[in-house]
Simulated assay, not measured.
Amino acid sequence: MGEVLMRLVTYDDGRVGYVTGDRVVDLGGLLVGGYTVPGTKSAMRRLLERWDQVRKALPAPAPTNSVPLASVRLGPPVPDPTKIVAAPVNYRDHRSEMAMTVDISDLAVFLKAPSSLLPHGGVVRLPYSDRRVDQEGELAAVIGRRAHRVSEADALGHVAGYTACLDITMRGGEDRSTRKSFDTFTPLGPWLVTADEAGPCDDVDLECVVNGEIRQKTNTRSLIWGVAKLVSYVSSVMTLEVGDVIATGTPAGVGPIAAGDEITVTLSRIGTLAVTVASDERGPSPTGTRRR
């Protein structure tokens, strides 16, 4: 199938579809029981669980099963991962700009709250008036097969596909998982491009732009730990479930963001994630007087 048939989206009230041209084709018919099955899993997670079985049976676009892309409200591609795992200091140039002597090989990974997810077109809300908040553009991998202690050689076979991510980060002395888990601090999207369509995950161009200025520009070949090593390692610590997200780390060019800013992350062969920034107007932070 062509590339446009592999851009999977969650849209409107939890529906799933694929994007072809300027239309979204609904895939609810591929879900056992359709959208009406009670339970806690999103339609996207249910679709990914069956993807190997249904991928060759995608319906062709027709007036009865598709709507204009411009008319839908996109959600995060996977709105309910059981976990978001993130890689700290996974580019050497970022380690240098942060003046750190350690990287992912020393720090391993950390978790972000799934409640921090934000869709394409959403608004990042800055929590406090006295804290610096930075943008961090990243490639994110989405798990497509349950992974428990998988080898590096087999790891990519457990990846459903890739999407763009922003790891929004408040600076301070609190634990990473706190500073990076505020509501709206994990924009994800606009869609999930399946692994076969996205091409080699170790050769993806990444560009992050704030208000028209390029802040970050790299290729994932510069990752310290590539996607395969990340999936293998994380699966040796915690079982990865279908729909779980691994944010692979950010390159140099991290910088402060402010209310009114417009941020985009563009990944070659995958797409562009765009968000804006606003203040939550809570006043000063009640925590963290050190290491600001």
Rank of each mutant, 00 (worst) to 15 (best):
V4A: 14
L5N: 11
R7Q: 07
V9D: 06
T10N: 12
D12A: 03
G14E: 13
Y18A: 02
R23Q: 15
V24G: 13
V25M: 04
G28V: 13
L30S: 09
V32E: 15
G33N: 12
G34Y: 08
T36K: 13
V37I: 11
P38W: 09
P38Q: 09
T40E: 14
R45H: 03
R46Q: 11
R46M: 09
L47N: 10
L48M: 10
L48K: 06
L48D: 07
W51Y: 14
V54N: 07
R55E: 13
K56C: 08
A57S: 14
P63I: 05
T64W: 00
P68Q: 06
V72I: 15
V72S: 07
V78A: 10
D80S: 15
T82V: 09
T82M: 06
I84W: 03
I84V: 15
I84Q: 03
V85L: 11
V89P: 07
Y91N: 00
H94T: 06
H94F: 10
R95M: 08
S96N: 10
M100T: 06
T101F: 05
D103E: 11
D103Y: 03
I104V: 15
D106T: 09
F110L: 04
F110T: 06
L111T: 11
S115W: 04
S116N: 10
L117F: 07
G122M: 03
G122A: 11
G122V: 08
G122S: 12
R125I: 14
R125L: 14
R132Y: 09
R132G: 10
V133M: 11
Q135F: 15
Q135H: 15
A140E: 02
A141R: 05
G144L: 09
A147P: 04
H148K: 09
H148N: 01
S151H: 07
E152Y: 08
D154V: 03
L156N: 07
A160T: 02
Y162Q: 03
Y162E: 00
Y162S: 01
T163G: 04
T163P: 01
A164P: 02
M170N: 04
G173V: 10
G173H: 09
E174I: 08
E174R: 14
S177A: 14
K180I: 10
T184P: 04
T186N: 13
L188P: 00
G189M: 13
W191N: 07
V193Y: 08
D196A: 13
C201I: 08
D203Q: 14
D205S: 13
E207L: 11
G212T: 13
E213W: 01
K217R: 15
T220Y: 08
G226V: 05
V227Q: 00
V227G: 02
A228G: 02
K229L: 10
V231K: 02
S232D: 03
S232K: 09
Y233I: 03
S236Y: 05
S236M: 02
V237L: 14
T239I: 06
T239N: 05
T239Q: 05
E241K: 12
V245M: 06
V245I: 15
I246K: 10
T248A: 10
A252P: 00
G253N: 06
P256K: 09
E262G: 13
E262H: 15
I263D: 04
V265R: 04
V265I: 11
S268R: 02
A274N: 05
A278C: 05
A278K: 12
R282Q: 13
R282E: 08
R282F: 03
G283P: 00
G283S: 06
G288L: 12
T289S: 12
R290Q: 13
